[in-house]
Design a protein around this nucleic acid. Structure first.
Lengths: 172, 172
DNA sequence: CGATCCGTTCAGTTGCAACTGAACAAACTT
DNA sequence: AAGTTTGTTCAGTTGCAACTGAACGGATCG
């Protein structure tokens, strides 16, 4: 990759990446960028600053934070003296993300189960739909594993990392 | 979901559901429906029939099957006597789906690792980005678990009773 | 009391991926 | 040979979600 640019550039790029990642999870890009900013800064960030820093309209910020609040990823803080709303990462945001995925997965799984049960017993599609059902069941089980894993830091499966983190000694 | 009447209706609804599910995995809806049809019918299906059965243009079928082939989910079969191309589910399609997800996840993980490494050592964002990184690491590990699970033969030959599905319990 | 700031809502725009129709080349038929 | 059938490609359309600007109500300040 390119040589380390300025600190602000790194920050901006990280925020942009998070926006793209979040799109894969069904969030609008701006909401993902809000998330990225809150992760990076770690601070309590005022509403207006989100609009300015991310260069988007306040309307977009409004809907984005609403989505993020609904998902339990972001928490709104209203300070008594201040007029603005402030936002920060909710506690355990990653566990919450997994729970959302879990929920959606279970919904799919249940629908397939319904289909299977409404089939005539002798339908030869039975076995194939069962395999499809098992697929979602496996994913569900795996997410449960990840949920327990997320809450205990520093525990990583060796060999899963695409790149070694030089700054950290989480291996061995 | 209302109790499905005819067998064909059940089939059509399943195909439609699969189309919607697949959208969540980043596939176009038509590609997902092709997948659903192949899962349900289990047969080798000719190109033209896909267009007719799914009520879409041949152009859409062409691009859809290309995407599905690229992902390794569908296999093209050209029969010697016949002019048409035929399609069927690839072996181990569910394992393949998981591998795609795994790949994307690792890519995200690697990008975050790059960001962390380019940060100054004393940046206070370090810890928070590490937590974000760990999040993806956990997911990666979970997918690995699911991958071994999916490939277990699990003997679900054609006569499996749907009763085993009824009242399935959420784990955890 | 205005005046100003703040966040939400909503009608309109915009950008983009999905989808189509038509033109095309290859392979086969007659 | 011309004529079919088949799958791909590509320019154009379409549908939809993301995003914006403006209007609004509520709160605070002067």
């Amino acid at each position: 990759m390119a040589d380390a640019s300025s600190h602000d550039t790194i920050r901006a790029e990280f925020i942009e990446k998070t926006g793209l990642f979040s799109q894969a999870e069904g969030l609008p890009r701006i909401a993902g960028r809000v998330l990225g900013l809150l992760i990076y800064d770690g601070d309590v960030v005022p509403f207006g600053e989100l609009a300015v820093k991310l260069q988007v309209s306040r309307a977009s910020i409004s809907t984005s934070v609403r989505l993020l609040e609904e998902r339990g990823l972001v928490k709104r803080v209203n300070k008594p003296g201040e007029r603005q709303s402030f936002f920060q990462l909710a506690p355990d945001p990653y566990g919450t993300m997994l729970k959302v995925v879990q929920q959606r997965n279970r919904s799919f799984q249940a629908e397939i189960a319904e289909t299977i049960e409404s089939l005539p017993k002798d339908a030869d599609a039975q076995g194939r739909l069962k395999a499809y059902y098992d697929f979602y069941a496996s994913i569900g089980a795996a997410i449960s594993v990840a949920l327990t894993e997320v809450n205990k830091p520093e525990v990583l499966e060796a060999g899963q990392q695409p790149a070694t983190l030089k700054g950290f000694k989480d291996d061995e």
